[in-house]
């Protein structure tokens, strides 16, 4: 707890306590923790001496801020015009159906967070899905499901790493 308070303080100092730099500060906190917890928003508001309402307003206004922890993997689906015309809407539906996840939400087993976004600007590759920073082009409903089913869960990753260690 103390450590987190210290971290928020560091971030505030990084920007000379300028409340105008609220968004970069929140971005930095999110990079560190993966999301913005209620506690951190409270700390930030206190440190900056601005109403919590303003901090919360900013956190909910911009779509890149998360208020809940993310899954192990990050899945981004481009919903730009070209991707949409080439079937991204259907891909999104199929993913939500198959994994029982809402757009912007995380699967119950925390395997991945699913974020449809406006446009990633890689229209030549449409439809595009990005998984942990890796771009997949020409995605279809079937291939998207296959890609997501083959995502390793945390336990698997740990097991793999352990067995890899044993081989050595």
């Amino acid at each position: 707890m103390e450590q987190e308070t210290k971290f928020v303080q560091e971030i505030v100092e990084r920007y000379d306590g300028d409340a105008g730099m609220l968004i970069p500060m929140m971005q930095d906190i999110q990079v560190e923790y993966g999301y913005l917890s209620a506690e951190q928003l409270r700390r930030l508001a206190k440190q900056l001496d601005v109403p919590l309402m303003r901090v919360y307003g900013v956190a909910t206004f911009y779509s890149s801020f998360r208020l809940a922890p993310k899954g192990q993997h990050e899945v981004t689906l481009c919903m730009g015009t070209v991707c949409y015309l080439k079937g991204a809407g259907r891909i999104s539906e199929v993913i939500c159906d198959e994994f029982q996840v809402e757009p912007g939400g995380t699967t119950a087993d925390r395997l991945f967070s699913f974020q449809p976004v406006n446009c990633v600007g890689a229209c030549a590759l449409a439809p595009v899905m990005i998984v942990d920073g890796k771009y997949y082009d020409g995605v279809t409903p079937a291939s998207a499901i296959d890609i997501l089913h083959s995502l390793p869960s945390e336990e698997e990753t740990v097991e793999e790493a352990e067995s890899y260690g044993k081989d050595k």
Partner: peptide, 25 residues
Amino acid sequence: INRGGGAFICGESTALMASLEGRTG
């Protein structure tokens, strides 16, 4: 450099400036 927060409206000049001031766009 300031990174946007993922809001289309911030392409509008006055909303962008509001965002640069650390407010909702």
